[in-house]
Design a protein around this nucleic acid. Structure first.
Lengths: 342, 342
DNA sequence: ATAGTAACCCGAAACGTTTCGGATGTCAAG
DNA sequence: CTTGACATCCGAAACGTTTCGGGTTACTAT
């Protein structure tokens, strides 16, 4: 059934050891011998048994990724792009990807244990850190290589390798953009409080208000669920309670779309009546009606850098920089009313 | 470092064999012994080494999925949902998922060989079949379990297990819907010709025209790339060449969004001036402006059924029905002008 | 002739699990 | 007292690979 090293050994007249070493590129095998063995291997259609190899060498050439999901709201476009960056880079470096999607909680930790202690993966990629996240301490206690997309919350130390985007600067830029356009009553739709980056985004909002000496009004700040529907509800709530609000900063694009829907639902016009901004710059942001002003984060690149960092750690050559904060950039489009008739 | 059966054996005073059998639930071990062994295993934090288990038992409890991608245009929302259905169901059945994304071609086949002959996976899930698809014959020749999302093209036999949606009926319903609204010049934006389901969608379009005794005009039929941009280009081309066209059937939602953009770009109104329909019913379809009339396919369910079917095949209990065509359903929204002022 | 060296090769053990084919002990029936 | 049946348990082999620690040969320098 399966072609093994033994088959090649028998057919080529060499030992299993030599066949193994020839195929692995060791220098202590005659070049002619190697060619012959390679030829036989090709004829037989040999493919190494990766389980056996992994068992023996304690290396699986596989990375693990557990996508955090909430109820039905699964991998949205963000994780799409993330998965692409991670998957591409892993493949280019000859690593496979073991993927699971788990709701945070006990089962999620079981999935981590299974991957890590089942020796299935050489390293793990974590995403969407939460407050008091149990995953990093666990992996640290196991001494298992891992990298994280996102830091811990501002008030917790982040003593692990990560790649994050500068949310604080991003939201600050978006808020400042609205202030520059003359808005004084600016709503904020935050991610759920348990998400680690929520703190940074709030800071950015506060920064911008402080700089402009505008009062910080807590009642203008609502939490959403990162989905479109959460943005919609928050948007409706803000608009009905505080009609003076003329701009809303949403902390991701999906919620921004919901906010836009809420605005339109109330018979107002996005951009001219109420300005909106998002965060992520998903492809859909550009095509929304009106196109969404948003903070772009390089999602693909984040995945890519994470994998490179992780592989470096696995092979014992960690990059000198293992805590990276990438810049974010404000992309101004019509939803902020910049080109509107304000 | 790692806790093995030997450790449990030493600590509990039983043999490795008995420990293994106790944990595996065999009946020839004393219940009291079993409890004791389980307890020791828990105290030690035992997690089976899945590589060793797989090597010995020739089962990995892992399914393989290679997402077909074109250039940068990666897993779009469709594969998101698909991945969710597949991932959820796999997890519920205690299977892991090995994922890769490959551009069709030589490298793609290498990825398949690697997964299959490297003995990493117990079965494979294929998606987006193409004409003359080399993957199914390969897997058949290897006698490796697999299931497919989608059939072969209408003119090729499909002698493998699959779950597909009834594209033909879906497009036929969409086209007939336009005809019923009085449209006589209806454009069609097809997927690339090498995709297997393109033939079925074309048939559906032809069916509807034939039924209504409307002439089939080949020049109304264009091919897109399944992306938004392809729909945009096709839409512009149709509208500029044939101003009499008053409705366009796009073969997926992404292309339909592009067509809508093209219509608006030309100063026309979607729905009233030119009606549009899509296929898939992505979440974004409902929120588009105007909301998109489209053919819904149960993407999550397809993934779910595929995994159930595949696991059945793996464990030797294939379901009686291994070639499933699920119904599709037309969802009428504003983009077809049904509620418009036509 | 001998020792040393380089080039090439190989046997055997090990990774952690499952499973085959018994082995042992106990007890009831004959 | 023997036999058989049953309930428990276990030794050893096997899955396919890598790697450690050599071994053999042929050549070079003494």
């Amino acid at each position: 059934m399966q072609i093994t090293l033994r088959d090649i050994a028998r057919k080529s007249g060499f030992s299993v050891t030599t066949v193994s070493r020839a195929l692995a590129g060791y220098q202590d095998v005659n070049e002619q011998t190697r060619q012959h063995i390679i030829e036989v291997a090709n004829i037989l259609g040999y493919q190494p048994n990766l389980l056996a190899r992994g068992l023996r060498s304690q290396r699986t050439q596989t990375l693990g990724l557990i996508i955090p999901t909430y109820d039905a709201g699964f991998p949205n476009e963000f994780f799409n792009q993330f998965l692409l960056g991670v998957g591409d880079t892993a493949w280019r470096n000859h690593y496979d990807l073991l993927v699971s999607a788990q709701v945070p909680g006990e089962e999620e930790m079981a999935a981590y244990r299974r991957m890590v202690k089942g020796l299935r993966v050489d390293g793990m990629i974590l995403a969407r850190t939460r407050k008091n996240d149990p995953r990093m301490p666990y992996l640290q206690s196991q001494g298992h290589p891992f990298v994280v997309n996102g830091r811990n919350a501002p008030d917790e130390p982040s003593d692990f390798p990560y790649v994050d985007v500068d949310s604080r600067m991003g939201i600050r830029a978006a808020t400042a953009h609205f202030i520059a356009l003359g808005h004084e009553h600016i709503g904020l739709v935050l991610p759920p409080p348990e998400i680690a980056y929520t703190g940074y985004r709030l800071q950015g909002y506060q920064d911008a208000l402080r700089e402009a000496r505008l009062p910080l009004r807590d009642e203008y700040i609502l939490y959403g669920d990162l989905q479109r529907s959460g943005g919609y509800q928050a948007g409706l709530a803000l608009l009905s309670r505080y009609p003076q609000i003329s701009a809303i900063v949403a902390c991701n694009d999906l919620m921004a779309f919901g906010v836009m829907a809420a605005i339109q639902e109330r018979g107002l016009e996005v951009g001219s009546d109420v300005a909106v901004s998002g965060f992520d710059d998903l492809p859909a942001a550009e095509y929304a009606m009106p196109p969404l002003t948003t903070v772009r984060q390089p999602i693909y690149e984040i995945g890519q850098r994470l994998v490179e960092m992780l592989i470096g750690i696995i092979v014992g050559k960690p990059p000198e920089e293992t805590q990276i904060v990438l810049p974010s950039r404000l992309i101004v489009r019509a939803s902020s009313g910049f080109n509107g008739r304000r």
